[in-house]
Design a protein around this nucleic acid. Sequence first.
DNA 1: TCAAAAGTGTTCTATCTACACCCATGT
DNA 2: ACATGGGTGTAGATAGAACACTTTTGA
Lengths: 217, 217
Amino acid sequence: MSTLEEHLSEDVAVILVIIGIVDGKPHVLLVHRSATPQEGKFALPGGKWKRTESLESSALQKLVQETGIENLYLEQLFTTTGLDQNTPSIAVAYFALADSNSVQLRNEEEWRPGWFAVESLPELAFDNNLVIAQAMSRIGAKLQYSNIAYSLLPDEFTLRQLQDVYEAIDTQPIDRRNFRKKMLASGLIEATGKIRRDGAHRPAQLYRFTSREAILI
Amino acid sequence: MSTLEEHLSEDVAVILVIIGIVDGKPHVLLVHRSATPQEGKFALPGGKWKRTESLESSALQKLVQETGIENLYLEQLFTTTGLDQNTPSIAVAYFALADSNSVQLRNEEEWRPGWFAVESLPELAFDNNLVIAQAMSRIGAKLQYSNIAYSLLPDEFTLRQLQDVYEAIDTQPIDRRNFRKKMLASGLIEATGKIRRDGAHRPAQLYRFTSREAILI
DNA sequence: TCAAAAGTGTTCTATCTACACCCATGT
DNA sequence: ACATGGGTGTAGATAGAACACTTTTGA
């Protein structure tokens, strides 16, 4: 890569808001900045856009690198300027949804990636707090009229797990009976026929999403 | 500006989907490309991002240049790569809504800007047809739960004019009585007390938007 | 037998849809 | 007087919200 191209590639960054549910609450994957600028702060994972590929490819590649998973829901959020006041640059933000139990965090001394509860984040580098807030807002809206929750859960799940995801994002309780009716009537999920025993109570039926591609309803 | 900076600035473009209603149908403002690449085709107006300002400022400046209006609704759509296969670059697309009767088109021989009906567009430069389709989809959705229609109309308007806007975007007829009830109940508009006479029929009351800032409902 | 979560139906309420007639004006 | 678009109310259908008891299991 020529010196010119190296310089050029610093102009455009891709950053990722990777959301997962941990302990029933939405968490975001953050890394620790060990280099300037904003050294010592936590920040969203990201990288430079490689001019030889599309933005989407760059984001997807970073997503796989951070989570070890291939088929997560990934959507562009927006593009901002001025991450860093000193060097004019633009950052294209994406958000992704992941089943946190399936994610394999990178174990790197330099970055120390980890899950952080969205409701109690520290002050992050750049405008990352704002970017995360926007992502949560978009996810909340989109949960209501799409099946993107598929990306927050394992292939098979109980209706209670599904409801937990909705309640974690909406942060308000949902009536169990109405939720079941609505989800089943939507056609987005179907029973697998299997049941799961996990405690001193009636076993729960397992469901799956009828499609694991994003669908608007 | 140094040679390096000139080169850098070519990497990021801002393009605008400016939508207005002409003859009861949605139209988009296009310009004629008189230079390579894609010479001779029509395209969305746009320009290079100036690294000394924010993306939003660049878009707004271009918007004023094309329409002569300051306070239009402007929203970022998304960012794409590969407008031109040869030189890797990214384009940040915005859409704006304008009262076409208030717009003063630039009268430039080189660009020849004009309004084109969205439903019968020619093949445009780059992926502009796709960008416009996405903009229309977003506008259609947003009309339902916001007041962005304010930007498509003059300050004072009749309920019929407002309904025409909605029908032009949705491309399906709406019941007049239900529409009036819903709009008035929403609180987004209020009567001005004035009436407008324009023909051999009962005069219509004029309304205004209670707010000319974007509001979600 | 007890605790804990799963499963299930009905009533009420609010919202959306469909629909027809009179009113004010200019010609 | 007539043609044109503005203005109004009601009834039926649909979707969402509220709400309590029985079932199955493990300890």
